[in-house]
Amino acid sequence: MSPDQLTKPPTAQPSPGARRPVGRHSPRPRRGKRPPRAEHLGRAALVFLMVLLAVPFVFPTWWMASSSLKTTSEILRIPPTVWAESPTLAPYRDVFTLQPFAQQYMNSLYIAVAVTIGTIAVAALAGYAFARIRFPGANALFVIVLIGMLVPSEVTIVPLFRMVNTLGLIDTHWPLIVIPVLGAPSVLATFIMRQFFITFPGELEEAGRMDGLTRFGIFARIAFPLARSAVAAVAIFTFLKSWNLYLEPIVYLSSKENFTLPQALTQYVDAYGGPIWNVQLAATTLTVIPVLIVFVIAQRQFIQGLANTGLKG
């Protein structure tokens, strides 16, 4: 597929501020000749349907959070109790005393931020090049990059481990930052950025060129600032992926001070490998809640971001 394909009229590009009204306060156009009463009933039925559908999505998360306040025997009880009988915050204290959990939280946070920033830089540059710049072999190079989207991490973990070991970077955070930024995990980001830049209005670039800007100047001063929405989408995808990375940290890291959160969660076990359920679930809850809160705050921006990328076509 050539970069010119899928080009849309530039006017279709809404500015980040102009968003479609969402939610119950939005004015809804009156439709059809159906009497309002029947329509109200229909809408009530739809809301009820959503409530039903929400149960399997919400219950496990609820169980996780409420179980972190229970005793082990209550967690294992069948059928599960919905509320903790005598809730205690002790597991939350143990989370921090059993391991350097705050340090591990920081590790996960800074790795995820570094990966996110690095991925945005690499993906925006490459996505821009593949979408807007004509150079010999561009398509072939794009295909090489795209292959990364098709490789499960289990497939390449052994050769990658050998590479990291040869470079002496075992038990450092380098492989967890450099490989995601440059390797397979960033390919989706490159793809999203490319799809975004394909729809980018050529007139703006032309104007920049007339002003004597170099390619880099056009990218840095015109294209990238206008890509905020696509960058937002890439940032959220990338952050979540890094935050939840499991196999790689376990393989690459060995000392507790270097652990990341998903790996640290596996360490809340008793002397014989049996999980200390309430502490483990308390720690899990601590890792989930902030991400959920960020999503609640940023969701509108996030969905707008996605709506404005080439992902919608």
């Binding site: 973990i157 052994v158 481990f161 050998r162 990291v164 070991n165 040869t166 075992i170 376990i250 393989v251």
Partner: peptide, 10 residues
């Protein structure tokens, strides 16, 4: 993990 370490020469 142990096997990966063996395979990786670590």
């Amino acid at each position: 993990t142990l096997t990966t370490q063996l395979a990786g020469g670590n």
